[in-house]
């Protein structure tokens, strides 16, 4: 079982290595996100009058803290996008190259195939996201934002990156699988997959408006909610991914 799952993971990675553009994507998008977050944290407090954001924001430091607070959710985007792109490309490629039927004629189980695909997208996605977070924090400290950063590196932050992030990237992957099972080509699958980013934007919006405080308990509950949705959707995905429907309906 493990051997078959790892076989899928290693093959996916070999495929990625043979397509330098996917590696570029894996590295460049996170770097852009990190650079953007750093840039905003640097430029906004410099040029924006804190007073416009209301009475609680009294100085530039408080304004920076407000921006830095968005960062955990910003980081969520990274694994979600990476998992998503790999999921859709991975499955669309199987369809286009007509490898699914030969694959399904081997002893591999459907769920093993899906598990392999999930791991192959989610592992690099999470590694990159964690590396981006570390990079961001390191540069933040180097820029002298230590006091503000230490106030965001809380239990919530760690729950967010270690639990919520994997849950969201799994959701992203599953939706990618479902999307690509309906899509006729890679482009259509990508368009469908972009839909996945919306719930994350929703979370960011909620965070930005400050209507909801993300306490550790709430983050935990949110993660569990995402995991529950994951489980429900995964069942649907496995069914969609049934041998019969792949071979006879995925045209």
């Amino acid at each position: 079982m493990r051997r078959r799952i790892w076989n899928v993971v290693r093959m996916e990675w070999a495929g990625m290595a043979a397509t330098p553009s996917s590696l570029l994507f894996l590295v460049v998008i996170p770097l852009i996100l990190v650079a953007q977050a750093l840039f905003l944290s640097w430029i906004v407090p410099r040029f924006v009058n804190p007073a416009i954001l209301g009475p609680t924001v009294t100085d530039a430091g408080a304004l920076r803290l407000l921006i830095l607070r968005q960062f955990p959710f910003f980081v969520l985007l990274i694994p979600a996008m990476v998992a998503n792109v790999f999921a859709t490309l991975g499955i669309v490629e199987e369809k286009v190259s007509r490898t699914l039927e030969p694959l399904l004629a081997t002893p591999v189980r459907t769920w093993e195939l899906l598990a392999g695909k999930i791991l192959s997208g989610a592992l690099p996605g999470l590694v990159v996201a964690w590396a981006s977070a570390a990079l961001f924090v390191a540069i933040g400290y180097a820029l002298g934002w230590g006091s503000q950063l230490s106030s965001i590196l809380t239990a919530t932050f760690f729950l967010d990156t270690l639990l919520l992030m994997p849950a969201v990237s799994l959701l992203s992957f599953i939706l990618g699988v479902i999307g690509s099972s309906r899509a006729r080509d890679a482009k259509e699958a990508q368009n469908l997959a972009v839909l996945v980013i919306f719930p994350i934007f929703g979370l960011i919006a909620v965070q930005v408006t400050g209507l909801v405080q993300f306490t550790p308990v709430r983050t935990l509950l949110l993660s569990l909610a995402f995991l529950a949705v994951d489980v429900i959707l995964l069942r649907g995905a496995v069914r969609l991914f049934g041998r019969e429907s792949i071979v006879t309906r995925w045209k």
């Binding site: 051997r3 078959r4 076989n7 093959m11 070999a14 495929g15 043979a18 397509t19 490629e93 190259s97 007509r98 490898t99 039927e101 030969p102 694959l103 004629a105 081997t106 002893p107 591999v108």
Partner: peptide, 25 residues
């Protein structure tokens, strides 16, 4: 089972393709 329209991972070598399928057994 030799399928009607058998496909491969075209960007990978013949050897890598076969090794992938073999490792499922």
């Amino acid at each position: 089972f030799l399928t009607e329209s058998p496909g491969f991972y075209e960007r990978l070598s013949a050897e890598r393709n076969l090794a992938y399928f073999a490792a499922f057994y």
